[in-house]
């Protein structure tokens, strides 16, 4: 290989992560400590690695993900909704959606041993965020990776300026981490705005309407702020241009994106977008990166 090519390779800046095992496909045993029903069909799992040294050593960035194994069933990728500032254990927030999660919900109980490999992906650029205001915009399950980031920001509150969260759900009974978000808001740790598409006759004291409309009403000091968004594809279509119109630079908007992933280490090809792998160079991309990768947001 020519020196130019070798240089080009190293400059691509793929993530360097320390995996749970030398064999990138091999999971490490982790025990399910607690399972709680977050909302209907969505559960919060508390996990801890079986090996005490690994449990202590396991470090990750907010926004990274892991591959969860149920032996004999397979594995699937899940975002980490917990913060690396809280050591020893970690959480997963999972919605029932397919074969793997059906099995997880129907057969896996507290105390069971599952496999975990990771952390995978790049995570949010939290060092870059230091000293700035943060605007987090979540749609639906997009709250899961942003909850990890939010906890991180709150745990290291002095390092960041304003922390704002705008979080939209379909209906009031779909709002994730509701009591936690309410108490965060009450303590003044973060400015949190919750909204639902429709109240569906349920009691609701938040806003009604799509999340993208609320962004306009926030009084944000745009040059001081980074925007971080996570949600379904349709959510990005409306949100991103609105943020740009509000004055956000495309390199100051970060997105956490979803793709089908199998290997998590940039080999299997499923999550490839353009010349990047969502599992390796993502799942967090700046909007600037994303518009240059045509398949990434819109299809």
């Amino acid at each position: 290989m020519s020196p130019e090519l070798a240089r080009a390779r190293t400059q691509r800046g793929a993530t360097r992560v320390t995996l749970t095992s030398a064999n990138p496909y091999q999971p490490a045993p982790a025990r399910i400590m607690r399972i709680s029903e977050e909302v209907a069909d969505t559960r919060l799992f508390d996990l801890r690695f079986e090996a005490p040294d690994l449990a202590e050593r396991f470090q990750y960035n907010p926004g990274q993900f892991i591959q969860l194994s149920i032996l004999g069933v397979g594995e699937a990728p899940f975002s980490l909704p917990s913060s690396p500032t809280r050591r020893g254990a970690f959480q997963l927030c999972i919605r029932r959606a397919g074969t793997f999660t059906n099995y997880l919900f129907d057969h896996v109980r507290e105390g069971d041993l599952v496999g975990v490999r990771g952390p995978l992906g790049n995570g949010f650029p939290v060092d870059q965020f230091a000293g700035h205001d943060l605007l987090l915009v979540a749609g639906g399950l997009g709250m899961v990776p942003l909850r990890g980031l939010l906890q991180y920001l709150i745990d290291l509150r002095h390092r960041f300026g304003r922390v704002m969260l705008v979080y939209g759900s379909r209906t009031p009974d779909q709002v994730l981490f509701r009591s936690e978000l309410t108490s965060m808001s009450r303590r003044g740790d973060a400015e949190i705005t919750l909204t639902v598409d429709a109240t569906a006759g349920q009691p609701w004291d938040g806003k009604v309407g799509v999340v993208t409309q609320l962004v306009d009403n926030l009084h944000v000091d745009v040059p001081k702020t980074f925007a971080v968004a996570c949600g379904p594809p349709v959510f990005y279509q409306f949100l991103l241009e609105r943020l740009v119109a509000a004055g956000f630079g495309k390199d100051r908007i970060f997105l956490s994106l979803e793709r089908r992933m199998e290997c998590g280490v940039g080999k299997c090809g499923h999550c490839a977008v353009g010349y990047t792998f969502t599992c390796l160079h993502g799942p967090v991309f700046s909007y600037w990166d994303a518009i240059n990768l045509p398949e990434l947001i819109y299809t």
Binding site: Y25, P232, H270, C271, A272, V273, E295, T299
Partner: peptide, 21 residues
Amino acid sequence: RMWDSCQYGAFTLEASGHNPR
């Protein structure tokens, strides 16, 4: 690990039902 092909429709199908290709 089993061979798969990027030419199959389900190759990129996500659990949510979203398919980027």
